[in-house]
Design a protein around this nucleic acid. Structure first.
Lengths: 226, 226
DNA sequence: CGCGGATTTGACCTACGTCAACACCCGTGG
DNA sequence: CCACGGGTGTTGACGTAGGTCAAATCCGCG
């Protein structure tokens, strides 16, 4: 299938578990979409109608209280899977942080296909288990860590998952408010902690959303996870 | 298989996806164990060696910082699945909150069996997706809710998942410290909030760990999720 | 060059944590 | 049957990390 042949995440997304014939069949139920920055494709509480693979860009998963406080519960990268298979309501919004490209499947058709192709289900299970591990370790951060620990953990986490090559210099695709929403603090706290680290020479802030880690060890000490 | 015939969670645990022959085969790789209150069976950071179904009792999943602060990332009930399949390290401790009974499988054998029996994998996937939904909605609580909102949400959540019949009167299997570790607050805050709700006539505290909800609507307002 | 959103910074406030006393519950042994 | 002791929970007084509010300041862009 031509659409898949030049797909950037062909070998990392869940599709990689399919053989060429299956993949062609699978491709037939999906379709490529571009999502402009700031636009949502899935809404908290809605019946789950689509699932997707992220091909390019970055997206956030978020949940809100009735009065508008927001918590970002995940930041997804290319090759990650989004949406809620198996006939349930979606628990969170999915919104593009940058212009993104996704490969979308109608949920019911996806469910049927997954039922018929166990390898796909198994790959999805592995990804879901990883997501669950990540969500739970983030719960420790949200519930028990101080603001400096939160920022340090966040920077190391972003560095480790940054798509680019150079690990110690990368771009957050998040602005200060979004960082705050990931860490469960306010925008002012994010700003203060970041500039504190800069003053201490542990990081540099070369641009709006650029980060350079100058002293990784200090950050690690500060992150304080077991 | 006789062991399964009188199993209390036969029809809810992941085994329910197997036909009698498969189930017998599956039962052969598992074994029933009793875990006394307070004892752990899985440790954070360890190589994953066992997975299990919970048959009776209640267990906590927890993660700690280097200096001993603890966050409970899940409370599991009978029929829930615990442990980390597919060759990874375990991200959290699993500890019995009450005397518990579990059906344990060596992880490698479980993985092999799951690979050969797609229906089992699919059922596990569904459970994992639910766990992930729960974990993420708890992230909103940890990151963005106030202490009163946390307590209210917690009580409603426990009420809805309490195994007993009567929904508005139930037993927490957690002491105050454990509630604090679930909510990311201190023991004193839990105590104050609980007694505040009692003073307002919204709940009653008939015993050490008994809860009676007197005004569910007030609690719901207070929980403040969308 | 000037405008508008994002970020930073400062001054102040408060929800929750900390620390310490005290009360309660229950089992044990005299 | 009651005194006693230890673990768990409650309550109060006080401290502080991080929130709130309000001003700068920065920066990208027409």
């Amino acid at each position: 299938m031509t659409a898949c042949d030049n797909c950037a995440v062909r070998d990392q997304a869940i599709c990689c578990s399919l053989n060429p014939a299956e993949r062609e069949q699978f491709a037939r139920i999906g379709r490529r979409m571009t999502i402009p920055k700031g636009q949502s494709i899935i809404w908290e509480g809605d019946e789950s109608v689509v699932v997707a693979n992220v091909v390019e860009g970055a997206m956030k998963l978020s949940i809100s209280t009735a009065d508008g406080r927001e918590q970002i519960v995940g930041v997804v990268q290319p090759a990650d899977f989004i949406g809620r298979p198996f006939g349930a309501k979606t628990g969170h919004n999915v919104t593009a942080l940058t212009k993104s490209s996704v490969c979308v499947f109608p949920r019911t058709e996806f469910d049927r296909f997954a039922g018929d192709h166990p390898t796909l289900g198994q790959t999805l299970l592995k990804k879901t288990l990883e997501d669950l591990d990540r969500a739970r370790s983030w719960m420790l951060l949200l519930g028990r860590k101080s603001a400096p620990e939160k920022i340090a953990t966040f920077l190391l986490d972003m560095a480790s998952r940054a798509p680019g090559s150079q690990v110690d210099r990368f771009n957050l695709s998040l602005n200060r408010q979004q960082i705050a929403d990931v860490l469960g603090v306010t925008i002012e706290t994010v700003s203060r902690q970041l500039n504190q680290l800069k003053r201490e020479g542990i990081i540099a802030l070369p641009s709006r959303d650029g980060i350079e880690i100058l002293d990784r060890e200090a950050l690690q000490d500060m992150a304080g996870t077991a």
